[in-house]
């Protein structure tokens, strides 16, 4: 069953159309990845799903239409977005960043429990709880961004290039945690990545984007074996 279903999605910045009728889906408890080069429209796709750009087309979350709704309201439905550039509140402490993650959640009673839970995933954040977020390293900030998203107790996690600018070891760690979260809590994941090899390892479904159009899609396994993909995106 599809958790997120997108059909004929279009998006534009000013006069420039960036997405030309995308269709894709994320299953309940599934991981879908969208691959593509710089400027293919990957980030815009995520922004379109949570109402940050002007869009046309159908976006259904859990069977409800969400296209055209305000970002704040979409977030409240349980869609957590880890944006490009991580969106850290640099001048706030790690703990305050995490509290903000839980801001839109219906039940606030278990804040302490949730903090404990994300600190289990990311022990380093627990150590730096009272530190100003701006003083964290890039990898720690990416962890903080994922942790902040988890505080929402989302049903769908949108990840925008979590590997960008991070050391391979750190990337592997983050991907491992995403997989754990996906398995243990049945959180659907929509992952946008340039690192196609890692993304295809993680995902069950994959879509390849070129200049705002889906040019190939299918089970991640199939795409990984595709010759064209291997040459252009996996590099072997």
């Amino acid at each position: 069953m599809a958790l997120l279903e997108v059909a004929g999605l279009e998006a534009q910045y000013g006069w420039t159309k960036v997405l030309h009728g995308l269709s894709f889906a994320v299953d309940v408890g599934g991981i879908t990845t969208i691959l593509g080069a710089n400027g293919a429209g990957k980030t815009t796709t995520l922004r379109a799903v949570c109402g940050m750009v002007k869009t046309a087309g159908e976006v259904r979350f859990d069977g409800h239409r969400i296209a055209g709704r305000a970002t704040e309201d979409i977030v409240r439905l349980g869609i957590a977005h880890v944006p490009e550039g991580r969106g850290t509140f640099m001048q706030l402490t790690v703990e305050e960043n995490l509290r903000l993650g839980a801001y839109a959640r219906a039940s606030r009673g278990t804040l302490a429990g949730d903090l404990r839970r994300v600190f289990e995933y990311f022990p380093v954040l627990g150590d730096r709880q009272r530190q100003i977020a701006g003083s964290l390293s890039g990898g720690e900030q990416q962890m903080l961004a994922v942790a902040r998203a988890l505080m929402l107790r989302p049903r769908l996690l949108l990840l925008d290039e979590p590997s960008l600018g991070l050391a391979p070891l750190v990337v592997r760690e983050i991907f491992r945690i995403v997989r754990t979260i996906n398995r243990e809590e049945r959180v659907g994941v929509l992952l946008v990545e340039q690192n196609a090899a890692m993304a295809l390892d993680l995902a069950d479904h994959a879509y390849l984007l070129e200049t705002g159009r889906v040019v190939m899609s299918g089970p991640a396994e199939t795409l990984r074996k595709d010759d064209a993909i291997r040459r252009s995106y996996l590099g072997y």
């Binding site: 940050m52 970002t71 977030v75 957590a80 969106g87 850290t88 509140f89 801001y103 929402l152």
Partner: peptide
């Protein structure tokens, strides 16, 4: 405070 610092991220937190 969050909204003043980073409106985009704040919206993504549902603020």
């Amino acid at each position: 405070r969050a909204a003043a610092q980073n409106p985009v991220s704040s919206r993504l937190c549902g603020i």
